[in-house]
Simulated assay, not measured.
Amino acid sequence: MRALVIDDSRVMRRIVSGILEDLGYEVQQAGHGREGLDVMDGGWVPDLACVDWNMPVMDGLQFVSAVRSNPAWRQLTIMMVTSESEHGQIVRALAAGAHEYMIKPFTADAFRDKLALLGMLPQEAVL
């Protein structure tokens, strides 16, 4: 399975990518939403996108909207991974098309649990 980690924090990208790689994902990273779309436009289409909200150039909500407006990418599972914890923000992200919402900080176990809820644990990670 493939995952795209989109976050303007290099440290956060490394943390999320490490968790996903430990679970068996092939991971690509992007520093903002536009860069994430460029990766996908280049033909590398993930099964899962883990997306921060607050980023320069294109924020996470704009990324979700762009993905949902493209029929080729509508099946992409999107999980917001952000420090935005207000109920209204969560509702906005889910209404825009995100499937799940993970609030920073989090543990690797909590991250794995969210992936399990989404049915996005690679087969080798389920064993």
Rank of each mutant, 00 (worst) to 15 (best):
D38Y: 04
S9V: 10
R2I: 07
G43R: 08
Q29E: 14
K114A: 09
G119V: 05
V51Y: 00
A72F: 04
I78F: 04
L23V: 06
G88R: 14
S17P: 12
A110F: 07
R92H: 08
E86M: 10
K104M: 00
Q28D: 11
G119T: 03
V67G: 01
G36L: 02
R14M: 12
S85M: 08
A125D: 11
R10W: 14
A95C: 08
A93R: 04
V11T: 15
E26I: 13
P56H: 13
F63S: 03
V51W: 00
L115D: 03
E35Q: 11
R68A: 01
G88C: 12
S9D: 11
A30L: 10
M40D: 00
S17H: 11
D109C: 02
A30D: 15
E84Q: 04
G42H: 07
L118Y: 06
A3K: 12
E21V: 13
R112W: 09
V11F: 15
N70S: 13
S69I: 08
D41C: 01
R92P: 03
R34M: 06
I19A: 02
K114D: 06
G42N: 10
V126M: 15
Q89P: 04
V126Q: 11
E21K: 14
K104C: 01
V51R: 01
G43W: 05
M80D: 08
Q62D: 14
L115W: 06
R2F: 09
D41S: 05
V67K: 00
A72L: 09
P46I: 09
V11A: 15
G88E: 15
P71R: 12
L76F: 03
L118D: 02
Q62S: 11
D113M: 07
L20M: 12
E84F: 00
S17L: 12
L115T: 04
I19Q: 07
V81Y: 10
V81C: 14
L61V: 07
M79A: 15
M102N: 04
P105C: 00
V67T: 00
V45N: 02
V16T: 14
R14P: 12
L61N: 06
Q75V: 13
V27E: 07
S65N: 15
S65W: 07
L20S: 02
E21T: 12
M120Q: 15
S65A: 13
A125L: 11
I78M: 14
P56N: 12
D22T: 10
A93G: 15
Y25N: 05
R14S: 14
E35F: 04
L118G: 13
L37H: 00
H87G: 10
L94G: 02
P56D: 15
G31T: 10
D109E: 15
K114G: 02
A95V: 10
V81M: 11
D47T: 01
G24M: 10
L94M: 13
T82C: 02
H87I: 15
I6N: 02
H32F: 08
P122E: 03
M80S: 05
Q123M: 12
S17K: 13
G18A: 12
K114Y: 06
A96R: 06
A95W: 10
E124Q: 14
V16N: 12
S17Q: 12
E86G: 13
V57P: 08
L37S: 00
M80H: 11
D8W: 13
F63R: 04
